[in-house]
Design a binder for these strands. Sequence first.
DNA 1: TACTATAAATCAAACGTTCGTTATGATGAT
DNA 2: ATCATCATAACGAACGTTTGATTTATAGTA
Lengths: 196, 196
Amino acid sequence: MDKKNYREKLISTATRLFAERGLNGVSIRELSTAAGVSISMISYYFEGKEGLYSSVLQEQFSCFEYMATIKERDSGPMDKIEEYIRWSIQRHRDYPFLLRYYTSELTNPTRYFSSIVRPTLEKALHILIDIIKTGIDEKLFRGGLNPEDTALAMAGMVNYYFLSTLATEEFINHSPERDEELIRHYMDIFTRGILS
Amino acid sequence: MDKKNYREKLISTATRLFAERGLNGVSIRELSTAAGVSISMISYYFEGKEGLYSSVLQEQFSCFEYMATIKERDSGPMDKIEEYIRWSIQRHRDYPFLLRYYTSELTNPTRYFSSIVRPTLEKALHILIDIIKTGIDEKLFRGGLNPEDTALAMAGMVNYYFLSTLATEEFINHSPERDEELIRHYMDIFTRGILS
DNA sequence: TACTATAAATCAAACGTTCGTTATGATGAT
DNA sequence: ATCATCATAACGAACGTTTGATTTATAGTA
């Protein structure tokens, strides 16, 4: 039989369950059963339950690094904007989990938030601003446009949709087709407001 | 001695503690001690812990009814927009709690979300849309403006700020002066994008 | 006013359950 | 021989709930 590594299995199961019900909403007994792994593996691979939670967190937020690469892509501002929206939507699949983190049940949530989440959100915003500035320079976007305002409105807009659909059937069951539909929807809004 | 009623004391304490650490992050022992009340009062006044949580929720969301009255106010669209922003900011003092609710630890969160939160958010959005439409009709706002897009961008924008400052010192310690500063800031952004 | 009976509000203690952790010994793969 | 994994059991701590007794408030009666 193949050598198994249940570390990943634990992480993926924990990601789903913690996203659904939070750190204190899931017992490690239920978690290990759902993962099909012995309960003692949690202490074996991680430093207990909070250690597992921290590992999940770290993995969740590492995905933001991809966002930073969009700026360097060899494509026009319009394509980059679309890429940002696409990335946002895929990221928002994990939104319940991220929201949980914002109001974390960890022993010292504020420190984590300040050191990871906040800079990440600000970085994302500045990348958007840069893309829009480039669009204005290249005279693709309206000259009168305020890059900071536009980026904020855009990031907020995408955000707001997910906040309002969170935890609904619509959110949980969104398909790739629905994703594309959403991307077109936001690109339409963006286009209406921004093209020169 | 006066007749006491610890119901309100329990609700106010629970509101603060649940906002900080969530339903499963606070034990009813700690909660009752913090309220200076016997633990059995929770089952006496509410139907257990979840009942108390539900009561807090209901009170939190009832504030949204005020939002609906803004539309009927006897003032211009610009004033109404400012009122909306002011209301949003004050509401966001309770943001950690509301966010918790979005990812609720209740037994059946989706039902609550669908029946309370979603309609509330949509109602708020439609009130904004109406205000903006009126502004366009009265030729105060740009004619080319898309009311739906603008309302969404605006609601999202205000939202995004709080998401990014949540759980930071900056958020927790914001003062009335800081509130006014924020209101002016958002009104500036709005004005730049919307006036005719 | 004073006494009493009833109901409401409050409490401390106990109950049974579940929690996260750790220890143990065994099994199969490398 | 080492490593990954298992099932199981045990542990003390913490959990939410319930019980039964006690205090307080209210109302009725004299």
